[in-house]
Amino acid sequence: MSFEIVLIGLATVIISAAPIVFAVIGETFSERSGVINLSLNGTIVLSAMISFAVAVHTNSLIFGYLSGMVVGAILAWIVAFSSISLHQSQVAVGFVLTETALSLAYFLGSPYTNSQGPTIQRVPIPLLSSIPVIGPLLFNADPLTYLSYLLIIGAWIYVFKTRPGLILQGIGERPAAAFVRGANVNRLRYMYTILGGALVGLAGPIFSLGVKAGWKGTISGLDGFGWIALSITIFGGWNPVRAAFGAYLFSLLQWLSLIAQPAFPSIPGAVLQVAPFPLMILTLLLVNISDAEWVNRTLAGMPESTRKVIARILRALHASPPAGLGIPFENE
């Protein structure tokens, strides 16, 4: 395989990772603030369908993207309202929403199945796109992909380098302490959950107006991405940059499974295509395994040099969730 073809392939990997990047960073914001929005799988499919329909009717990509964000924000608001204001289980409500949104998407979407809709075009950035290797790899994409780069950098700076970002960390880690210092914990949680939901909702139109253009009902191939995004959020250790890395890794696995097909004629193509999904979820083992008692016991029995290396790798991979994740906060 020539270098050119690999480069074109990798550029596609980056473009098809864009929706997942938006979803994982959206969920990272929401979970950083202390709220698990488990509705991602339904949210992405429903926002893909609604935004496609809106784009078909208005013939406008912009309205398509905006409507996807609105759908995501509304579903996230339901999660926030039921957990923060009504003290219901976030997991329960999120799961119900996911399933309901899926059915809703297939029900409402059936008139639009296989309709023709607008799709976003690639817009090479002048100058940057002519840099060797990096140009064709990163700067020969569509505007939403460029936006995803900005989101990764912007989200990282916001969370770790700004004052509101520090407060965001605070309300997720030690809500009581943040409250004492004057943060309105529940209002901020509402805000970040809805903001995160809007970002997740953008993943839908990025699929239906670009990466997987159109609407094909249950065979649209979008069911599953939300669960992957949720597991990448954990893999990413609630850090936007690491989460984005997870999204790229998943997208790379998908591409590899596609180009690996001719090499394994005995494995049915349908099987290889699904393989990245379980693989990505099982990477969660690497994130959490150093917490397990038997791992520490085994490590303790190893020779010093090996132990140090393994322990260092495990520590680098390890991530802990925000301490207040999923726990309602009462300001009393």
Partner: peptide, 30 residues
């Protein structure tokens, strides 16, 4: 996965769901 791998049952379960449906596809096509 939950006890010895520290993987929350929701995500371990999802991963195993994906593996199970992949396995069915493999058997049906293979």
């Amino acid at each position: 996965l939950k006890t010895f791998g520290g993987v929350n049952e929701i995500f371990g379960g999802l991963g195993l769901n994906f593996i199970a449906s992949t396995l069915v596809l493999y058997l049906i096509y293979g």
